[in-house]
Design a protein around this nucleic acid. Structure first.
Length: 574
RNA sequence: CGGGGCGUAGCGCAGCCUGGUUAGCGCGCCUGCCUUGGGAGCAGGAGGUCGCAGGUUCGAAUCCUGCCGCCCCGACCA
């Protein structure tokens, strides 16, 4: 491709709207242009990178035995009512009525449509297993779209759905996708981790997320330094320490009231009473689908709301307002405690092994000390509620943990029969039993992969595309458009590279060298060939690697072989 | 949804507080000259419903009201 033939409107200045690096570089490199909030046009160069990802995804999905199809974006609401998600999904589902007043929605995902296909087409165990996928634009009316392609409202996604005869068979389908995803992200040249994850609104029994490691990630994941365990913070199970001391309730004096005027936070109460936050229990009130529940945690811990939400099976949870807390407990915020509390109480698992501790007295300006969990209050619901932190041991091997930021680019779920039962998608097995299809679903944020790749691979000058995702592997800068020898050489190299099957991009614009260098860096071609004054003087061609600036000068005849070798090195390294 | 900010040429911004010639600046764009290894230089030029609608005023980019759009922060601790 020639620059003169491709619309790549690069920008010298950074548009004011862009905050994160991938957004800025995608705009500056002419990859995307915003139409409205969270909705972008993919310009030719940006689209080319997206196509690279799509190709890898397609190849690996096909290799794993999945078949491509394409489903509609506009979906009738009654399908969503059947699955129960019309109510459940919330405002992210964009709903509208067509001219016949039929309720419709824009597909944020396609479980309903695919399940409808499945129930029409699959009737026998002989039809199974099947895995169907599509690469398509999704629409989710995000609360707050941001970060360009990282969290748009409209985005390109690959979604796959598997159908099996049994749980066991479904797990095999799941494993195939797990393997395929690892191959896909490895082939993309990205540093990523596969983590245990929460299955969220889509539902299902277990799932993994694929996270590209990058500083601007929206998620935090815990990874073990000593084994391969990794998990999303939302999901990371805490390993009970097992070293908790059994506190003999009879050896601790009876609990007593302590005046704590005006001390409402963990920090100030601890300072006031001269104790550590580990010796205090905090009691928080949440409103779960309108019902107040109290949560008990050690003072220095952080509640993991997803764990709470999942345990409660609630659609929506939120921290209670001050007035709601008072209405529910009769106590003001800052002085809540488990002793004598009248609402449902959930305790984090480590709480019941602690003691003696300080808790709120359920009245203003007072706390209780010498409180022994189990002796002075009881609760039946003891579970893992807190967020994992770096000081925790690895749940798998007991090793040390590290928290890193990641960008979720893939997510696989074992769905089970939730959708097939709700929508009556059944088949007959070999014995003639009528059974629900066992499903799995598997997503990749294709457009987000491009953003994540840039977040992970850039420098001050611009993008540094990994070779497999680069729209072109090499750019040829013709720095002497009006010089016959230089232009002839640039053209010759361009033709030779093309003949050798290397995707080359020829900067044939009538621009000054400075502009060409800057644009080449910004656009992130992995290699740059410069044909200019130096060639005119020495007859040598300069080949430079974008990533580290490694530069070689070779005879023209050697360029193609040398580049071929370099590119092979880059790809096999992964 | 709550809080904050912004909307002036394609992009980035100044002007607004304290109303008053023809609304400026940088980049980009067009023409010419010149230049050609890291976003050159000189000269000339085009380009504006000052987000929209009302209002105040002799006069509004500027003050007031309403609306629209966009960006950022928050929706995580008792």
């Amino acid at each position: 491709m020639r620059y003169s033939q491709m619309l790549i409107p690069t920008l010298k200045e950074v548009p004011a709207e862009a905050e994160v690096i991938s957004h800025r570089l995608l705009l500056r490199a002419g990859c995307i242009r915003k139409l409205t909030a969270g909705i972008y046009t993919y310009m030719p160069y940006g689209l080319a990178a997206i196509r690279r990802v799509e190709t890898i995804v397609r190849e690996e999905m096909n290799r794993a035995g999945a078949q491509e199809l394409l489903m509609p974006m506009v979906q009738p609401a009654d399908l969503w009512q059947e699955s129960g998600r019309h109510e459940k999904y919330g405002p992210e589902l964009l709903r509208f009525r067509d001219r016949h007043d039929r309720e419709s929605c824009l597909g944020p995902t396609h479980e309903e449509v695919i399940t409808d296909i499945a129930r029409r087409e699959f009737h026998s165990y002989r039809d199974l297993p099947v895995n169907l996928y599509q690469i398509q634009t999704k629409f989710r009316d995000e609360i707050r779209p941001r970060f360009g392609l990282m969290r748009g409202r409209e985005f390109i996604m690959k979604d796959a759905y598997s159908f099996d005869v049994s749980d066991k068979a479904a797990e095999e389908s799941y494993r195939k996708m797990y393997d395929a995803y690892n191959r896909i992200f490895t082939r993309c040249g990205l540093e990523f981790r596969c983590v245990e994850a929460d299955s969220g609104a889509i539902g299902g029994s277990f799932s993994h997320e694929f996270m590209v490691l990058a500083a601007t990630g929206e998620d935090t994941i815990a990874v073990c330094n000593d084994c391969s365990w990794a998990a999303n913070l939302e999901k990371a199970a805490i390993r009970p320490t097992g070293t908790q001391t059994e506190v003999a309730g009879d050896r601790v004096p009876a609990m007593e009231r302590a005046e704590t005027p005006g001390q409402r936070t963990v920090k100030t109460v601890c300072e006031f009473l001269g104790i550590a936050p580990q010796q205090l229990l905090k009691t928080m009130v949440y409103i779960a689908d309108g019902v107040p529940v109290a949560v008990l945690l050690r003072g220095d811990r952080t509640l993991e709301e997803v764990k709470l939400k999942n345990h409660l099976g609630a659609k929506d949870i939120r921290l209670a307002e001050d007035q709601e807390v008072y209405d529910a407990t009769g106590a003001p915020v800052g002085y809540l405690g488990p002793v004598g509390l009248k609402i449902r109480l959930l305790a984090d698992q480590e709480v019941m092994g602690l003691g003696p501790v300080v808790v709120g007295a359920n009245e203003k300006n007072a706390h209780l000390r010498n409180v022994v969990p189990g002796r002075d209050f009881q609760t039946d619901e003891v579970l893992d509620l807190r967020q994992i932190c770096e000081s925790d041991p690895c749940p798998a091997c007991g090793g040390t943990l590290r928290l890193v930021e990641g960008i979720e680019v893939g997510h696989i779920f074992k769905l089970g029969t939730a959708y097939s039962e709700a929508m009556n998608a059944r088949f007959q097995d070999q014995e003639g039993n009528d059974l629900p299809l066992v499903m799995g679903c598997y997503g990749i944020g294709v457009s987000r992969v491009v953003a994540a790749a840039i977040e992970q691979n850039h420098d001050d000058a611009g993008i540094i595309f990994p070779v497999p995702l680069a729209p072109f592997q090499v750019v040829i800068l013709n720095l002497g458009i009006k010089d016959e020898a230089i232009t002839a050489m640039a053209e010759r190299l361009y033709a030779e590279l093309g003949a050798a099957g290397i995707d080359a991009f020829l900067d044939d614009r009538d621009e000054r060298p400075g502009s060409k260098f800057k644009d080449a860096d910004l656009l992130g071609f992995p290699y740059r060939i410069t044909v200019g004054k130096r060639f005119a003087e020495s007859g040598l061609i300069e080949v430079r690697r974008r990533r580290d600036g490694f530069t070689e000068e070779v005879e023209a005849v050697a360029v193609v072989d040398m580049l071929r070798a370099r590119l092979d090195e880059d790809v096999s390294k992964d």
